[in-house]
Amino acid sequence: MRRVAALAVILLALGGFFAWRMMRDRDAAQAPFLGYVEGEVLYIGPNEGERLASLAVAAGAVVKPGDLLFAMSTTLLDRQRSEALARIGQFEAQLQNLRAAMNRPEQVAVLHAGLERAEAALTLSRNDYDRQLKLYRSGNVAKATLDRAEMALRRDEASVKEARRQVNAALIPGRSQEIEAAEAAIRQARAQLEAIDIRLGRQKVRAPAAGVVQDVFFRPGEVVNAGQPVVALLPPENRKVRFYVPEPRLAAVRIGGQVKVGCDGCPDDLFGRISFVASRQEYTPPVIFSDVERAKLVFKAEARLEGRARELPLGMPVSVTPLAQTAGAER
């Protein structure tokens, strides 16, 4: 009888153990995944190294796209812009001078007067030549006198041609090659001015997206290198939950699937959508919010928060339950 009683006790103990084991496995299969809230922070810095002139936000500030975050000093760029404007003015004056006549109106008037004087001298010498030619034909003057009159006529004709060419040369504008070179110089100077204006605009750094300022790393008066972050901005859509899925339950997690997010003191209508599941397993991380089965391999997963869940603070521990699993558990 004692053996039978002992055997019965052993069988009851084994039955209780297996029942407890089955209940524990069932609870483990239905337990939510544990994780924490993370965020992909945007680290925003200047395009060029300069001194921080002003800061328009503080940690915790909520900004909209296009809101001013901070401004850098523009002393050097302002001087470069003034220099570019002066260079453009110089090139435009040179181009206007090349397009205009080579001489001033007063100088052209003097040349016209010289032409009129040469033409008057030519008229006088032509009349004298005609008179000497008639006298020579009548035998009243020698051949030498006629030759001198003809030489004076040819001289005055050459003087008139020279005076006309001087007037025409004075009215000719600069050479076309020089004008094209001056126009190209103006285009280049204007392009440099536009580049400086773009750099000046970039010195005022604005929010690329709506979000919450997580941290500010510099204060006005400090020198910031190019690309060095001044403000850390977290857009709401960049908040996510990172959690780890044991291998036996990996089939319940699918990219694009909706999950329910829970936390202490949080409302029940917090949801997210799975955006990442690791393709390789890894050991249970040393810091995790569960003491059960640490030695098993797990798969890292992430879910993008939606709606009111985007208001959860970074680092907050949460529980993640796939909605399909919740429905199966209720049935």
Rank of each mutant, 00 (worst) to 15 (best):
Q192P: 09
A109V: 03
Y43I: 05
N140C: 00
A113S: 11
R99A: 00
E48A: 14
A252D: 10
L146A: 06
L153W: 01
L85N: 00
A93P: 01
E83S: 12
A5K: 03
L14W: 07
A58N: 12
G139E: 01
A149I: 08
V261K: 10
V253F: 00
I186L: 04
G89Y: 06
A184F: 03
N103D: 04
E247K: 14
F299C: 00
R310D: 12
Q192K: 15
N97M: 11
L312K: 07
S275Q: 11
F299S: 12
V287F: 12
Y36E: 13
M23W: 10
T74V: 05
V231F: 03
E150I: 00
A8H: 05
E38M: 11
L314C: 05
R87W: 02
P220L: 01
P229G: 04
G272M: 07
A149N: 04
R148S: 15
V318G: 09
Q228T: 10
A118T: 12
R187C: 02
V57N: 10
L133T: 14
P65T: 02
L305S: 12
D147V: 03
A84K: 04
S54H: 15
G307Y: 04
R99W: 01
F218A: 02
R249Q: 08
E48R: 13
R254A: 10
F91S: 04
A61D: 11
A118S: 13
L135I: 02
R249M: 01
T145I: 13
R51F: 15
D147M: 07
R239I: 12
K134Q: 14
V259E: 07
P313I: 14
Q132R: 06
I196V: 13
M22W: 12
I186G: 05
R310K: 05
A86Q: 05
G49Q: 15
